[in-house]
Design a protein around this nucleic acid. Structure first.
Lengths: 229, 229
DNA sequence: TTTATTAATGTTGTTTTTACATTTATGTTA
DNA sequence: TAACATAAATGTAAAAACAACATTAATAAA
């Protein structure tokens, strides 16, 4: 029977951030090389401890900022990991958070001032503690999210081609999609603006650039919907 | 910059359980009347504190058992709540868990030996702290689950009629479903055994009883699927 | 001017979903 | 014992969504 509050069983509460990014090479996660013991020098998710006067969401934001300088990144809570010896130093429960960001907007900053580095999700180093598991679960969540929310806004440059959007979805779902069917499904969502402008990098013909229509996009974000790709 | 482990910011970690049940009256949640301060006498989710040598899943199981005598209930972790003053006594982060159980199998035991009580989800008392929010989020999760996993096994009596199954889904989704379409979708899942036996309670004609085909059911549980109701 | 490259575009058959009404079995009542 | 009342069981057709698929168009480079 639970009787009263005791301070006997307080624990350390950590936050670990799974940051997804996307560029021409594919889907990536942001990792850092730990600069303290234990496991110093090993690759790890960006993480830190919750402070007494902080909610988890803020801790996640603060920690991400501390390690990467990134600001105003919306993160979403995922799961609390609590295996007894997941951290060998001290009993620590860790709550994972994940976010999507646009690599090109942030890359210079990250690489220059911090020791954070992007790794392709299929070619990342082995991570400390239970961080590999955290990443795998975050990928699952990301896949699920593609089917109920429009994503891409955060991961692509402001102006992008249909091919880039297609490749983003293919990278997330790790399967090939039919180009024509993909395009017509995306168009049916009615969240893109087709620009006059063309991107001439990728072909002689050039391909139209698109931007997200922020208002319509936000509207869709409210009401879940099904996007079967 | 995060430097080393400090014990300065340890917190209490709680677990709160949202237990769903179903009977002829509809979908219900299990609540208890708090028998300690603060908020003594008010209704609350079943909850308690994580112990140092315990993982969250075990804590959830232990706490549920302590308050209700219930054993072997599979629970699933949902979300960590961390508002600073969510618990007025002391900074406490709470991780919510949810489970589905069959009311009829457990009711007697619960009501007799403990102070737990079932409330219809649409007619439950106001709860302490942020427990109302926890319940609302759990309902959302439950709805989501209906679309990717077969549920019902846990909530219905061993033998049940199609009508009962229909009413369960209607209660969870809180919308009416077309009976014929529902039945054919359920049948297409191929997880039920139709018995010879009929239930004569509900009508003069009587309606066939079904059981879940445990093997096929388990099989479906593994692989997510889409059930659009 | 020809060539090479990638972009843009639409149709058809198949499957899934939705909407919807009649007949059947059986206990109750007149 | 016949008529009645009640809920169960059942099927179809139209609409929508999905999947598979190949040709033409625009442009830079040779």
């Amino acid at each position: 029977m639970l009787n009263s509050y005791s301070s006997a069983d307080k624990v350390l509460l950590a936050v670990d951030c799974i940051i997804f990014g996307f560029d021409h090479e594919g889907l990536k996660i942001l990792l850092i090389q730990r600069d303290f013991e234990p496991e110093k020098g090993k690759w790890s998710l960006i993480g830190g401890f919750l402070k007494r006067d902080e909610v988890l969401d803020s801790a996640a934001t603060r920690i991400l900022n501390t390690y990467t300088g990134l600001n105003d990144i919306y993160m979403e809570q995922l799961y609390a990991y609590s295996e007894i010896d997941r951290d060998p130093v001290e009993r620590t429960i860790s709550v994972s958070y994940f976010a999507l960001i646009n690599i090109e907007n942030h890359n210079a900053e990250l690489i220059q001032n911090y020791h954070a580095e992007w790794f392709p999700i299929n070619d990342a180093p082995n991570l400390i503690f239970d961080h590999n598991e955290m990443v795998q679960n975050a990928i699952k969540r990301l896949r699920y999210k593609t089917s109920v929310k429009p994503i891409g806004f955060e991961l692509l440059p402001e102006k992008f081609t249909m091919r880039q959007l297609l490749e983003l979805y293919e990278a997330i779902l790790s399967k090939e999609l039919d180009k024509r069917n993909f395009i017509s499904k995306i168009n049916s969502l009615d969240i893109l603006n087709k620009l006059e402008e063309k991107d001439m990098q990728s072909s002689r013909k050039g391909s139209y650039l698109y931007t997200f229509n922020k208002e319509k996009y936000e509207e869709k974000l409210q009401n879940n919907f099904a996007l079967n790709l």
